[in-house]
Amino acid sequence: MSNINGKVYAMNAITPMKPWKTWILRLIFFVLGHVKSLQQDLINLSFIEFARWVVVPRGGFPQLGNGQEPEKLTYDYLLFFSNFNGTWNQYIDAFSAVLFKGLDLIWKWSEKFPGSVPVTIFKEYIGRVQFDTDYYFTAYPHATANDLKAAHSVQASFDDLRSRAANLSGPEFADAYLNFVLQVQPYLGETGEAPVVF
């Protein structure tokens, strides 16, 4: 059991909300979901593979039968789930440094949320509400999101060159090959082992 698989870290955080506040958050999610420009900063953090917030209403927990009593929950819950590359500290530092307004908007409805700035108290909060990962499958443990995007770019350029190569004369191929190299030259980093966690 580990939150880390190769170059990827999986973070789960679950925070309780008073039910009347859940409606405010739902409205905020509606706006954030429909105004793409508001998501841009999150998308631009290139070490984040995935980030999602989900409201789990207090009546929405599964009841398996077999004598399991229905629970009477006082709070709704906000589940945050993210996969990212790099260190836990780096991730939260970056959130606090550049996404603090968005984070506060989403999390301020949760109980005891201290704000995403200053970062030390924010980290303590995340530490308290984080649930460790039981099982974690990663298709490419030796690759980051950047590595995967780079590989797609290289593949697309290569496929394009290959499809045209047979019909090119020598000089034309030389030119097409140079074009290919210029297209892929920012995307040639190695994949491999992740740095030691610290």
Binding site: F47, N146, D147, G189, E190, V196
Partner: peptide
Amino acid sequence: SRQFEFVQQQWIEYGNDAKQGND
């Protein structure tokens, strides 16, 4: 830890932030 070690590990001995993989 936050300054020297981060720079040494993540930016000198590794390249993901620069989108250069493990270079």
